[in-house]
């Protein structure tokens, strides 16, 4: 059996709302989970169970109170719960891709540059990065006339496809996907399914939230159940 690319142990995450009477909302309790190369783990659970919280914790966007999230980074491991900011940034740059539900676009930056940016951060030359970004935009059927425009004016579905192009333009060893197909029509959903299958085939470990049953059935190697924490402490 190969080693996992992500290994989660004893993960606990709660939110303390200091300005609302100090209410504590426990969300994740004692999560253990390993994700291996070439598999796609679909997170499942009722709304509010903590699927997004788990995914965001894996990316170190949320800060868990206890436990480990070890990510295979180059020849070593990085524990995303305790790593220094610049270590986490290095993991995000080279190892860990994340496709969020919504594109947070910088005003005035053309779609092609939004997609090319992860490559540029890895040190790929401007011309090569643009070429690869264009190929990915074409694959996601963003009309060529839009490539040089800032995505803030695009439709919801177009913005999401730019976001997906940005997430898949680099061959990350680990991919985190938060509802990547939510705003897409069926033809575009199939393109995303293909991208996910290709990532698995090259040995990536994928963790995702897929509300679309057909997409989930097509890409998931297995289901990881996220259960709602019952009581507020």
């Amino acid at each position: 059996m190969p080693e996992p690319l992500i290994s989660v142990r004893g993960l606990n995450k709660s939110f303390t709302l200091h300005n609302q009477g100090g209410v504590v909302l426990p969300v994740l309790r004692n999560i253990d989970c390993d994700v291996y190369p070439g598999e796609c783990v679909a997170l499942q659970g009722v709304s509010g169970a903590g699927k997004s919280t788990l995914l965001r914790s894996l990316y170190a966007n949320y800060k868990p109170q206890a436990g480990q999230i070890r990510v295979r980074h180059g020849a070593g491991w990085v524990d995303m719960v305790v790593a220094e900011a610049r270590e986490i940034l290095a993991v995000r740059r080279h190892t860990l891709g994340y496709v969020s539900q919504f594109l947070r676009a910088v005003p005035r930056v053309p779609a092609v540059d939004v997609v090319a940016e992860p490559l540029r951060l890895q040190g790929v030359s401007a011309s090569q990065a643009s070429q690869r970004a264009e190929r990915m935009l074409a694959r996601l059927r963003i009309p060529q006339r839009l490539w040089s425009l800032a995505p803030s004016t695009f439709s919801g579905g177009e913005q999401q496809r730019v976001n997906i192009a940005r997430g898949f333009v680099v061959d990350y060893p680990v991919l985190l996907l938060d509802e990547p197909t939510a705003a897409l029509d069926s033809a575009n959903r199939l393109i995303v399914v293909d991208l996910i299958q290709e990532a698995k085939a090259r040995g990536a470990a994928v963790v995702g939230i897929f509300h679309d049953q057909a997409v989930r059935d097509a890409v998931a190697s297995r289901i990881f159940e996220v259960e709602r924490c019952e009581s507020a402490v």
Binding site: F15, T16, L17, H18, N19, R56, A60, N61, Y62, K63, A85, I88, L89
Partner: peptide, 21 residues
């Protein structure tokens, strides 16, 4: 102190929570 997106999306200190909200 921390990663920008972490501090803004999951603020820990009462003042940061107030600032973000």
């Amino acid at each position: 102190a921390g990663l920008t997106d972490q501090v803004l999306d999951d603020p820990q200190h009462p003042y940061t929570q107030l600032l973000v909200s």
